[in-house]
Write a protein that binds this DNA or RNA. Sequence first.
DNA 1: CCCGCAACATGACAATTGTCAAGTTCGCGC
DNA 2: GCGCGAACTTGACAATTGTCATGTTGCGGG
Lengths: 233, 233
Amino acid sequence: MSHEAQKAIARQSLLLRSLPEQHVETLLSHAIWRQYDRGETIFLQEEKAQAIHVVLEGWVKLFRMTPTGAEAVVSVFTRGDSFGEAVALRNVPYPVSAEAVSACDVMHIPSPILISLMKEDPEIGISILAATFTHLHSLVAQLEQLKAQTGAQRVAEFLLNLCDSDAGSCDVALPYDKMLIAGRLGMKPESLSRAFSRLKAVGVKINRNHAVISDIALLRDYAESDPAENWGR
Amino acid sequence: MSHEAQKAIARQSLLLRSLPEQHVETLLSHAIWRQYDRGETIFLQEEKAQAIHVVLEGWVKLFRMTPTGAEAVVSVFTRGDSFGEAVALRNVPYPVSAEAVSACDVMHIPSPILISLMKEDPEIGISILAATFTHLHSLVAQLEQLKAQTGAQRVAEFLLNLCDSDAGSCDVALPYDKMLIAGRLGMKPESLSRAFSRLKAVGVKINRNHAVISDIALLRDYAESDPAENWGR
DNA sequence: CCCGCAACATGACAATTGTCAAGTTCGCGC
DNA sequence: GCGCGAACTTGACAATTGTCATGTTGCGGG
């Protein structure tokens, strides 16, 4: 991909899109571009944050390692997503690790640049808060899902988020492999398989890495229904 | 409690404690004080945020109502905690509702005050980001717990967080009632009861609203152990 | 003081999920 | 093309958790 095309993607990110043009230019001119191979580490939990990151291409996961070695996936980002905003400005350790789950292009904006710019124009602070709030919100939504929905319902919501429309039928590509989807939804791959087969009853068919949803409204009803009322299947 | 004592508590909050004195004065002089009864709503999900909140006394819970009416507790705050930072500055709807779970004193700092102050001094933005980051971090920790620990282990961590020391024994008061603890930990009250009885095996005794931990290190080992390796109880 | 209600504990049962094992499919390097 | 390995599926079994029912306790209002 051309450098210009990458800059265009970066400009669409939540972090940059509401900033005055001159600041965007400054940030882009100081940014560092890097490519990562599948499986490569972008940063590690406990490491000091020194930059904000913007995904230009590919997929990146944020995860935490538990003391026992199990990993809990916190979020998955792709083209146009930024992350690390809140940490970068405070010189504190990352609470999570980041790893490329496919080959990736990632742009890094060194935090000192941000900080100096922020001191001249508080508008930057607002942009960063906007991006941070969006992450906060998505974490809250995940918490709600984990606490109040069954596995199959979480899978249903995940599929619904991949659809553009909100009624009718739909054919979506699963964005990354099922092991990662399972991790993102807080379950084992085996449970994800079972969840998929359970969703057949509400018009979902899985083929390779494609999902065909015959009735989006029906699926949404299922996702939002009380877990208890589906006892008769 | 005297007004002065309340101001002293507010100054210790994550939001205010690193701010230059003059700004703290400005904010405090514009703040609104309110008392809430147990069960009273402080704000509702979807409502537009107009202030940052600081708990001066009592306990406040943040929660989300699912479409089916179940509630998922996101966080619980008490004296000296601030919340709503990221939302207040953006004039967006709250992603959660807030309710007093005991009688409460809460201070509200209207967001216009914050915004105008922020435009003069970017330092304010940093303070707000600091507070927001702390919340982000605690949500990430909760996600990890829900995804990678059993119910009993989450209860163990909850108890450990109530202890000051990190070894020896300890007698802590449960800060709020067990229904709320269960909600905060993502389980039903019945499951919390069972988790408590399971913890007897690692030296925890529950008496009314008191927990006696005979060996903190042992309990921590249990909380961090692999769920699978405790099969023989 | 007594009543009634809400919180809490406990047991039985069903549903869900993790674990283990076995088999299938798919993609990639040789 | 062949074969290896990782991803994925499926089944059986055990552990966990939610649900429902029942009983106890403690507290506040009449």
